Simulated assay, not measured.
Amino acid sequence: MEDVFSHFDLVLKAFWLTVQLAFLSGVAALVLGTALAAMRVGPIAVLRWVAATYVTLVRNTPLLVMCVFVFFAAPNTGLLTGAPYVLKGTIAVSLYTAPFVAESLRAGVNAVPLGQAEAARAIGMTFGQNMRHVVLPQAFRASVPPLASTLIAMTKNTSVVAVFGLMEATARMRYFVNRNADDTMLIFVLFAIGYIVLVELISLGAVGLERRWRAAR
């Protein structure tokens, strides 16, 4: 473990990159997932079909396939040519996570009493205003636990991009294991603790949001 601790700055940089990937992918997935959820419950049949098709396809596709598409297939068609690997990793993880966010939010939307949406329409609100001011705020409150689980899974899924050259935590762990085969188990434990800390921070944030919104009722 002497090699690891003498180069601990590399460990910190690797986890910082993991945090960046998780944060950027989480924000993008929440935005795209919210749009998909709104499309799935919206009045326009074509948009419902598009959102349902995307959700079904991506949820039944491994993240590795999405990464291969973003890192290799897309540049061959002229998309994302020369884009930084961090951007490609963010796009792959967020595109993969968005359908899970959408389904969590859709369950939250279904939990909102129907009478509230009907009352909003009765006073002249458009579908967009209804979703923005009445339905989605309540749906987010109801969806905090499943959304937290989705973001936790997404944080762990960022490890997949290590295959494509990003030196995040898992890639750095493999680097140290290759240099210190006798300390393999200790290195695994060290990096596992790092991931546990990240996951617990997301969990604590979700619990804090739940308590705050519960107190605001």
Results as ranks from 00 to 15, higher is better:
M1F: 13
S6D: 15
S6N: 14
F8S: 00
D9Y: 08
L12V: 08
L12E: 11
A14W: 14
W16H: 01
T18R: 06
T18L: 13
L21T: 03
A22E: 07
A22T: 15
A22V: 08
L24G: 06
S25T: 05
A28D: 02
A28I: 12
L36S: 06
A37G: 06
R40V: 01
I44F: 14
I44D: 12
A45G: 01
R48Q: 12
R48F: 09
W49R: 01
Y54H: 03
V55N: 02
T56Q: 14
V58H: 07
V58D: 00
R59F: 13
R59K: 09
N60I: 12
N60W: 14
T61Y: 08
P62K: 05
L63H: 11
C67Q: 06
V68S: 10
F69H: 00
F71H: 07
F72L: 11
A73Q: 07
A74C: 07
N76R: 09
L79V: 11
L79H: 12
T81M: 13
T81R: 15
A83W: 14
A83Q: 05
A83D: 12
A83T: 12
A83S: 08
Y85I: 04
G89V: 05
I91Y: 14
I91L: 15
V93M: 07
S94I: 02
L95F: 15
Y96K: 00
T97F: 13
E103S: 03
R106Q: 08
A107W: 11
G108M: 03
V112P: 08
P113M: 12
G115C: 08
A117I: 04
A117E: 06
A119Q: 07
R121N: 03
M131I: 04
V134S: 03
V134L: 05
P137C: 04
Q138N: 05
Q138A: 03
S143K: 02
S143T: 10
S143F: 12
S143Q: 07
V144L: 10
P145Q: 05
P146Y: 10
L147F: 15
T150R: 05
L151I: 04
I152T: 11
I152E: 02
M154Q: 13
K156G: 06
N157S: 14
N157I: 00
V160E: 07
V160L: 06
A162Y: 12
M167I: 01
M167D: 06
E168L: 04
A169D: 05
T170V: 10
A171F: 13
Y175M: 01
N178M: 11
R179H: 10
R179M: 15
N180L: 11
N180I: 05
N180T: 09
D182C: 01
D183C: 03
M185C: 01
M185T: 10
L186I: 03
F188W: 14
V189P: 01
F191L: 00
F191N: 00
F191K: 01
I193V: 15
G194D: 11
G194R: 04
G194A: 07
I196R: 12
V197S: 09
E200Q: 15
L201W: 10
L201Y: 08
L201Q: 04
I202C: 02
R211A: 13
R212S: 08
